[in-house]
């Protein structure tokens, strides 16, 4: 039987953690997004012609939003789990009547909620630049939540794997950031040399950014089916792998 009260408490604790350090978890990404939108969208964007029929600000906004969703989901679950392991108050959870799945859900839902809060804030900021549109609401919701789930799961993996805070930042610096920037946040992949375009199709981040761009402004550069397959495949394989590690107690139960 599911420990519903316990699960709700785990999630509540994760959300309260986000709110407790709101300047770091919410205000900072909002300010950063505001600067991105202002500089790239407004200042630089005015001097750039349309891309695939969209103004530059309309084109980059979905990418900026997705970049923030990815970072928030990943950072939340990775830092929360790693910090709890570091100060050992993860043991409060380990001695409680939780299944492995409930524990994982606590971190993942916490990460997704933070991602949605950050993404929602970015969307509201974009409204002031008349750049926030949603053409396909259900798809917009799907891409936001499913990509947040993928990165919250990746964050849990990083939170388990990292033995120090330095290692924790490695994933962000060497994987998340480059793949996001190379996934077409600020440009259309058709702007890339032909050989690099082929490589871009192997970058899963491209499908996340392209998917949300389609849901917001109706422009798509990738195959939607491949995008769905990439997202579901990552979600399922990461869920299975993370559950396996929790079950094994890897770097969790001594």
């Amino acid at each position: 039987m599911v420990n519903w009260v316990g699960l709700y408490t785990l999630i509540r604790r994760e959300v309260e953690r986000t709110v407790r350090v709101a300047t770091q978890t919410l205000v900072t990404p909002w300010i950063s997004a505001l600067l991105y939108i202002f500089i790239f969208g407004s200042v630089v964007g005015r001097r750039i012609d349309t891309i695939a029929g969209a103004t530059y600000i309309d084109f980059v906004l979905p990418g900026i939003l997705m970049m923030n969703v990815i970072t928030a989901a990943f950072t939340h679950s990775s830092s929360s789990l790693h910090f709890q392991r570091f100060v050992r108050h993860i043991e409060e959870v380990l001695v409680a009547p939780f299944s492995h799945v409930e524990m994982i859900l606590g971190f993942v839902v916490g990460g997704v909620l933070r991602a949605v809060l950050v993404g929602g804030g970015v969307f509201v900021i974009a409204l002031f630049f008349s750049a926030a549109t949603v053409e396909h609401f259900l798809l917009f919701f799907f891409y936001t939540v499913s990509v947040a789930i993928v990165f919250a799961l990746l964050g849990v993996l990083a939170g388990l794997w990292a033995q120090s805070f330095e290692q924790l930042s490695v994933m962000n610096t060497f994987v998340i950031m480059p793949f996001t920037f190379l996934g077409g946040v600020f440009y259309s992949i058709h702007m890339l040399p032909e050989k690099l375009q082929v490589i871009a199709y192997f970058n899963p981040f491209f499908y996340f950014i392209d998917g949300i761009r389609y849901s917001m402004i109706g422009i798509r550069e990738s195959n939607a089916t491949i995008g769905f397959i990439v997202i579901f495949a990552m979600m399922i394989s990461l869920s299975i792998f993370v559950e396996y590690l929790f079950k094994k107690g890897w770097r969790l139960r001594g």
Partner: peptide, 25 residues
């Protein structure tokens, strides 16, 4: 436990409340 395996930044009441929740209260 022997070591303080606790959230040092959480107030005492909140810590106890969370723990009660974990156990389904």
């Amino acid at each position: 436990p022997q070591e303080f395996n606790i959230d040092f930044f959480a107030p005492v009441r909140k810590t106890l409340n969370y723990m009660g929740g974990y156990f389904g209260l």
